[in-house]
């Protein structure tokens, strides 16, 4: 199989093309002596129409980074810009976080997808219906539009959630471990499905994951975060051609990306591990000296 290479200039549309810049962003929690920095001096550009994947050791501060970019939390220092304007005002409504969310169990697929815009009334009824029908088709759920979540498989539920997120036409889609909790087979199907969806629309995407291969097959840029507090350890550009195919994971390039990423992550994980060890050793010492 020989994949075609598409030009870098992907299809254009009014929405989905936000450019995000993080400039020296830091964030910590707690007061004085118990203060802990979680995100430390992160500078990063999330290019329009590209998929930027973020991986890091568990507990490194990925979720905080997501909350900051989404505008759920504000940085203590540094700034985050969407298309050149600081995030934090009304602009963050143009971003949608997609994580393992919940459909309303008592609404049908269709009702779940149109729930938000219908309540807001910010889309004419007819246009909303047409958009919903289009999206249902895109996520392969046309035949299931009148079914309730209980009647859908896990993968179908996740696709319905995805449709509910993108019906808002966000400038940036933030995916926070979106396929977590799915079984291996469903996960791979979702990755493939999402890959097609992304390549069709090229919506600027920040994709947080703990799966390296998932990151490599989806991403244009792979950001490796350090152990907590999260710093940008390295940005690896993934130059695999698009449209991507899963078979590319077997290529020499993909293998090299994976090896480089794993090495960095391993180093960071070891740092975290040895810190825990020393904290533990310190505790044991403290306890035993008190006991004697």
């Amino acid at each position: 199989m020989k994949p075609e290479t598409t030009a870098a200039g992907a299809p254009t549309s009014a929405s989905g093309k936000g450019r995000i810049e993080l400039q020296h962003v830091s964030k910590g929690y707690g007061e004085a002596w118990e203060r802990q920095e979680v995100v430390s001096d992160v500078s990063l550009e999330i290019a329009p129409g590209k998929l930027t994947a973020v991986v890091g050791p568990s507990g490194c501060g990925k979720s905080t980074l997501v909350n900051l970019v989404a505008g759920f939390e504000s940085p203590e220092s540094g700034r985050i810009l969407l298309n050149g304007r600081p995030v934090g005002g009304p602009s963050h409504e143009r971003m949608v976080v997609f994580q393992e969310t919940a459909l309303m169990p008592w609404l049908t697929t269709y009702q779940n997808i149109v729930f938000g815009p219908r309540i807001r009334g910010d889309m004419p009824k007819k246009a909303l219906h047409e958009e919903a029908v289009k999206l249902l088709d895109k996520v392969g759920l046309s035949e299931f539009k009148d079914k309730y979540p209980i009647q859908l498989s896990g993968g179908m539920q996740r696709r319905a959630e995805l449709a509910r997120a993108i019906i808002n036409r966000p400038k940036l889609l933030i995916m926070d471990e979106p396929f977590r909790g799915l079984d291996a087979m469903t996960r791979e199907l979702m990755q493939e499905f999402f890959l097609r969806l992304f390549e069709e629309n090229r919506r600027t995407n920040l994709f947080v994951t703990s799966e390296i291969e998932e990151a490599i097959i989806l991403a244009d840029h792979l950001v490796i975060l350090s152990n907590r507090p999260a710093r940008v350890r390295e940005v690896i550009d993934i130059d695999l051609p698009r449209p991507r195919e899963f078979a590319m994971l077997g290529s020499r390039e993909a293998y090299q990306y994976k090896r480089a990423a794993l090495e960095l992550l391993h180093e960071e994980a070891m740092k975290s591990f040895s810190e825990q060890q020393s904290v533990q050793a310190g505790l044991i010492e403290a306890i035993s000296s008190r006991g004697s």
Binding site: E93, V96, V97, F98, Q99, T101, A102, I119, R120, R164
Partner: peptide, 15 residues
């Protein structure tokens, strides 16, 4: 739900 979220564009009243 455990993962209550999404629908961030709605106001609390709208939800």
């Amino acid at each position: 739900p455990e993962t209550a979220g999404g629908l961030g564009r709605l106001t609390a009243l709208e939800l």
